[in-house]
Design a protein around this nucleic acid. Structure first.
Lengths: 346, 346
DNA sequence: TTGTAAGCGTTATCAC
DNA sequence: GTGATAACGCTTACAA
């Protein structure tokens, strides 16, 4: 009953349909699709365009990808997609990606190495041309493998030096130093730093190390606490302890990232302690809510959008054949002074 | 110099490599890859597994997709990826997607119909099997086309009835009613609703309409203002006006979504007006910061994660062949009472 | 339980 | 300027 095109799997127009209707060969259409317009006569070009519009033809990237051994797909593996820090990076990466004709495959690992592994596997199957990853650091074998093959890999936020990949990060030493110096200059004598699980996450390690180095030989009491956010009760107790021993006037709480900062503020407010008066608060990541809470929260802003843009550009350069040694690109953090850590008198 | 495998484009193992090393045909490997283990003898199965592990073989989804006319790709087109509302949905969708062996292509349109169109085009080229879209509502022709072909489409948050797609949304009438009733019960007499550009965005239209219907024949003064967030100055003036004419005790500001809510709070605080005392504040979308600002902001929470999960499940059902009439799935909003809209006396 | 061979929609290599 | 034709890495009748 059907005509002879019944063999086709879907109703989508293919390059052959276009060729037939335009009265030329597939090769010619392919040339058009690859932008080799100088090889086409004006009349064929016009005809092709008309047919394509008529048929609503969309070149099949799977077929093209199979043939050219390129997928035009970039993988983006993110530890926590609901963290605004991550989405800001994503947004930067996405803008560049689109502009260059690539598409983004987004994966959310929840900081789980097993999930990360499954995603890398999946991305390999899709033959992604590049990968931007905010890695748990515990799938290095897999990552190495990816890079050995065809894929350009760029690490964001977290480095893994052994891997020899390009990295785009914050200059955590500079940023932490800016934060610590601010607190010192304002007269704080008791500073507690809170961070999520530190080991293996380079950004956290750098922040903590800098904090400790700067404060070790001073007349300032410094402490570092590792927090498990699933155990808020423990976190709360730790804060109580700190508030008990550190005198009201000169104590400051330092949050190593935006997620911890939010939880810290939550707990402090719950205890009826007033931010900026009873305790100073300072944290990494400048979230949209920072100016609105209490007297405004002083933060260390990261240029997240630019980090995303830069990471994607680096990936695309690698895809385009750049074989130069790995680059480590670090951005400066910016201290945004608000009311949560006011000057204190002796 | 090279051996005869030099013709291969990349070094990646293919199904033929596996077949050769396992001493069987490609067909047999393909059967293994498709999980048809009952058609394989134990010894071949074992050999295949060993070779695959050895070669680090990853089946090429482009090749498989080309042949089977399925990409195992789901497109997700989002108006604003930095809006936590969107990422929460994304997270739900992503979880289901992964679990079912599909991958997500994420696109951010900035509410720009032109960008949306380009993305849909791109997604068509990748032959996505399904699409979840938070649409601008101004590319209906393109969307229709997608659906005519092979792609399952589900609309989230914003409906376009003419299109006949499945939708997953908030029950905006119920949610808005809960909000308005709360304010009425607490004694507020002057209520101003602020929303971004309303026309064409069903969620906003429904909220505004319900607000107006409920308040039209009451002894309450109600007003609706359409806000352009790029013109914060105007927004500020509008608020001034409202504060001037509405008496201090009984006025409330209602924000039609989380983005507007944040900006509203920003402006109110800038004016030195105290939330919960000088003015009540209530808004759609429960963001993580809502309990931390002022006396805690009363909000209408949307079950965003579940919406994402539901939308993705619907898409996958359609992909799996469900041809039933379009479903409109609406979730209830939940009023979270905090301190920003306290009871007022006469 | 296994294998042969054709074909998915492109691009690349030659040829004219 | 244009066209035949052979791949790319898979799946799928159909055979055995």
């Amino acid at each position: 009953m059907e005509n002879k095109r019944q063999k086709k799997q879907s109703d989508r127009a293919t390059i052959s349909d276009v060729a037939r209707l335009a009265g030329v060969s597939k090769t010619t259409i392919s040339r058009y699709l690859s932008g080799k317009y100088h090889m086409l006569s004006d009349s064929t070009l016009n005809r092709i365009e008309k047919v394509i519009a008529e048929l609503n033809y969309r070149p099949n990237k799977m077929a093209r990808g199979l043939k050219r051994d390129r997928s035009y797909l970039i993988g983006m593996v993110i530890a926590d997609i609901t963290n605004p820090f991550s989405t800001a990076i994503l947004r930067g990466a996405e803008d560049v990606c689109k502009q260059r004709g690539y598409s983004l495959m987004v994966c959310n690992t929840d900081n789980d190495p097993a999930k990360e592994r499954e995603y890398i596997f999946m991305l390999q199957s899709h033959r992604i041309d590049g990968l931007i990853i905010n890695t748990t650091g515990r799938n290095n074998k897999f990552l190495q493998e990816l890079a050995t093959e065809k894929t350009a890999v760029v690490l964001v936020d977290r480095k893994v030096p052994e891997l020899g990949f390009d990295t785009v990060t914050l200059d955590n030493e500079q940023a932490m130093a800016a934060g610590v110096n601010h607190l010192l200059a304002r007269g704080y004598k008791h500073i507690a730093l809170f961070s999520e699980s530190i080991a293996g996450v380079s950004s956290r390690e750098e922040r903590v190390r800098t904090f400790q180095n700067m404060l070790s030989d001073r007349e300032v009491s410094a402490e570092v606490h590792e927090i498990d956010l699933r155990e808020l009760r423990e976190f709360s107790l730790l804060l109580d302890e700190f508030f008990q021993k550190a005198p009201k006037g000169k104590r400051a709480v330092f949050a190593a990232n935006g997620v911890i900062l939010l939880k810290t503020i939550h707990l402090i407010q719950e205890k009826g302690i007033e931010i900026g008066k009873d305790v100073a608060v300072l944290g990494f990541d400048d979230m949209e809510w920072a100016p609105l809470i209490g007297p405004g929260i002083t933060t260390l802003a990261q240029p997240t959008y630019e980090m995303g843009v830069t990471a994607m550009k680096r990936v695309l350069e690698r895809i385009d054949g750049d074989r130069s040694p790995a680059q480590n690109i670090a951005f400066s953090g910016q201290l945004l002074v608000r009311g949560s850590a006011p000057e204190v008198r002796d």
